[in-house]
Amino acid sequence: MSEIFAAKELTKTFGHGKHVVEAVKQVSFSLQEREVVTIVGESGSGKSTLARMVLGLLPITSGQMTFQGQDVTHLKDRAAYWRDVQAVFQDPFSSFNQFFTVRRLLHRSLRLLHADVGRERLEESLQYVGLTGPDVLDRYPHQLSGGQRQRIMIARALMLRPKLLVADEATSMLDASLRVNILNVLTDLRDELGMTVLFITHDIGQACYVADRVLVMENGLMVEQGSTDDVIFNPQHEYTQRLLSDVPKLHQAS
């Protein structure tokens, strides 16, 4: 295994003076190739901010990032970076251009690929998320349900076969069956193509199922990180323990 991504003491502050928000504070972590790593933590703890920095979408206040050994703290060629690093964003209601059909949205991403390969990938990716082209390609975002939009975003990211996929609450609006199918696709693509996945979720069940390692954020800080077995079944930090104790149960007894 080799390291594909590393973050050193990443910090992000918003605003000035009295209104300053330290959303991410001195966070360090690394991702190994073929690893599925989950970030969990309360709402507002800085997970999405961290993800947006990893994606080069937010200027970094301080700290350093490397991708495949290259410094990517201040990206010069973002288009090139995004060929390898793809994202699925948290809110499928806002991350769509409302005036584009699904076809146009997906084709924009396909420009990077050869036409034949593109067509094949498009079909394949839609199939991964339980959709078919004729059913959805000519629709506008408002003609899709919440979960269908989320699935389009996942298909779009997978089409490009990224080396690193950053998925921010990407499965929150999917039913349990689709969700597990898509998680299986992600781990299969990891196995087949060596994809690395940074998976942000509040669902401890999903984290437990897919993740090799779990990172826990509280209030901008990374308070615990370790193997999934350690973090979920033997949490050390008091915050992680509390987070886990609130998990709702499917059955009373268990």
Partner: peptide, 14 residues
Amino acid sequence: ALLSSVLVPEPAYR
């Protein structure tokens, strides 16, 4: 079928 797809945070699911 839906219920059987629920992911429970228990060691077996790892």
